[in-house]
Structure formats: structure tokens, C-alpha cells
């Protein structure tokens, strides 16, 4: 979205997108709307990065043997299989 021309336009775009989504219950991306495509690529890339980072962090805090003793009570609270 940051690649778009202006901030206000960004919000207007995303609102319009949300509106059209509500009406059609689908993703009617116009083939000519390159700004949408760029913002979609940016969005999917950021989401993929956030997901990968979240899963790595979850493995370390929830499952790594090295952090078992310090993370012990937190693991029991979140019911990760701990021992």
C-alpha cells in the first residue's frame, strides 16, 4: 500500500475494496488495476514473513529443549507438551 500515490488514496482504495468484497463475497481484482496488484504482493509478502517469524518464535519458546527450564511455567499455561 505504501507504493500507492497518497495516504488518503490508500485508505479510500482499501475501503472501496472492502465494500466490493462485501457486495460480491469474492475478490474482484480488476486486471488493469496495477496499484491493487502491487499492494496485494506487498500484503502477501508481509503476511508470509510474519507467519514464518511467528512459527520460528513459537518453536523456540514452546518447544526448544534449550529453553525448557526458563519457559517451564509458560509452557504449562499454554499447554504445550512440556515433559
Amino acid at each position: 500500500m505504501t507504493i500507492n500515490s497518497g495516504k488518503t488514496n490508500n485508505h479510500a482504495n482499501s475501503n472501496a475494496m472492502a465494500q466490493s468484497l462485501k457486495q460480491t463475497n469474492a475478490m474482484p481484482l480488476a486486471s488493469g488495476a496495477s496499484a491493487h496488484d502491487i499492494s496485494r504482493t506487498n500484503r502477501v509478502a508481509t503476511a508470509t514473513f510474519a507467519l514464518a517469524l511467528g512459527l520460528c518464535l513459537l518453536s523456540v519458546v514452546g518447544y526448544a529443549q534449550a529453553t525448557h527450564d526458563v519457559a517451564h511455567d509458560a509452557r504449562h499455561t499454554f499447554s504445550f507438551p512440556c515433559h
Partner: peptide, 28 residues
């Protein structure tokens, strides 16, 4: 202190995963 730190790190991990889901969905 350890427990608070690891509760918060777990929370950050789950917040990242949830934010990724929200972003993938792409709705307001």
C-alpha cells in the same frame, strides 16, 4: 521474570501468526 518474559514471547508469536492470517485474508 522468566515466566513473564516467555508468556510475552509466546504472545508475540501468536500475535504474528494471527496478524499474518488477517493480512492474508485482506479484509478491513
Amino acid at each position: 521474570i522468566n515466566t513473564f518474559a516467555f508468556d510475552t514471547l509466546t504472545a508475540l508469536a501468536f500475535a504474528l501468526i494471527m496478524a499474518a492470517g488477517i493480512l492474508f485474508q485482506g479484509r478491513a
